[in-house]
Design a protein around this nucleic acid. Structure first.
Lengths: 208, 208
DNA sequence: CAAATAACATACAATCTGCATGTAAATACG
DNA sequence: CGTATTTACATGCAGATTGTATGTTATTTG
């Protein structure tokens, strides 16, 4: 028996402690809310002291940011994993929507990414995170659709943001217990509505 | 001069104190954030003590709810005031969107109604407030459009929620400094995309 | 192997929230 | 009209939380 658990390199120690902290915080932040979760509770769950926390993170908010970052990455990865090789642009978008809604059903994720995240870190910071992980595939899908001329040409940033907002709200509604079907139907209608077509006047006759 | 400020009825006292508290809280909650604003600061600005606050409101969150409620009502009223008598359903929707985006430019409103509100009170409570004030006109506009057959028939609740989410995100982006034009353009495209028309396949040829 | 540094643990100060208790003003009531 | 009761506050207190400062132990560097 050389040593029970000793002789760990500093890099290993840091990595392990940070991971423990983030994991414990993630659990508590998703079970309760950001403000309802105190740092004493977090460090107790992680098996360290508050000293460790404040050594590795500037403050509670920085720990929260790390959790959000990791969770956004997880969502993005789940979506990419579920994303089929390459369909028509429109079908790829819908597949992506479904994957996103499915990924957001992981317990507490909506609160973390859609409620507490924006409130605690600000919309700007969340946009930055989203653009780095999640929204990229959405924007690329939209650009592809426009290039294939199956979707009308629109400002990409704005379109991405607004569609993402609709997805987010759908995820929240579903999490709250709403049936997914109508939301899915509306999302598809919104996407299909953007398919290349000239505008018509308000009193458009029914075409069916 | 009968009395300097005395002999006020209890109803008047309550009304005045509550109003002072809500006004001070509104100012601070919009300047800073909900958590960054402490009750000592609020009561100091309102010229009362914390005893008064906790006499009139169950807790800090209840005061916040009152502020949000009042602010949502103000937004709804601004929209109705700007809403022209009766246009074609599609134009009424766009006028409503513009009015909403204009109303949300009041400083701090986005943080109050779109960031802190959902996080502090929960999405469910915010939906309840929105449905009581703001979203009503949107939903009615959508129903009207569907009835006039100028918009495809879709689940009303879901459509209202998702469009409202897009409006909200646009308001946030504009507040953050983005140019309104592209967001307005996309919102109009989303609305127009729902005009009555049969679905087309993915590879739809351009019809122009 | 000593010096410097990193990774924690512990103790402390400043706040903040909610409640309990106390007091003055208004209202109800006989 | 005078007293009992309720309302509208003010003050003080207890518990908890956050961030920091200080102390200690384990690594790494030279």
């Amino acid at each position: 028996m050389q040593q029970e658990s000793a002789r760990r390199s500093n890099r290993d120690r840091t990595e392990a402690t940070r991971a423990d902290l983030i994991a414990a915080a993630r659990r508590l932040f998703t079970e309760k809310s950001y403000t309802e979760t105190g740092t004493p509770e977090i460090v107790a769950a992680a098996g360290v002291t508050r000293g460790a926390l404040y050594h590795h993170f500037a403050d509670k908010q920085a720990l929260f940011a790390a959790v959000v970052e990791q969770e956004a990455a997880a969502v993005a990865e789940e979506i990419e994993r579920a994303s089929p090789p390459s369909l028509f642009a429109r079908d790829a978008l819908i597949a992506g929507s479904d994957a996103y809604l499915a990924a957001m059903r992981a317990p507490g994720r909506t609160r973390l990414l859609l409620l507490d995240g924006p409130a605690v870190l600000g919309r700007a910071a969340m946009d930055e995170i989203d653009n780095r992980h999640g929204n990229r595939s959405l924007r690329e899908g939209l650009v592809a659709a426009m290039r294939s001329q199956s979707m009308m040409r629109l400002p990409v940033e704005a379109l991405t943001a607004l569609l993402a907002a609709a997805f987010d709200r759908a995820a929240l509604a579903i999490e709250a217990g709403a049936s997914p079907a109508p939301y899915r139907e509306v999302l598809i209608a919104l996407i299909d509505g953007l398919s290349q077509a000239p505008h018509r006047g308000p009193g458009a006759a029914r075409t069916r």
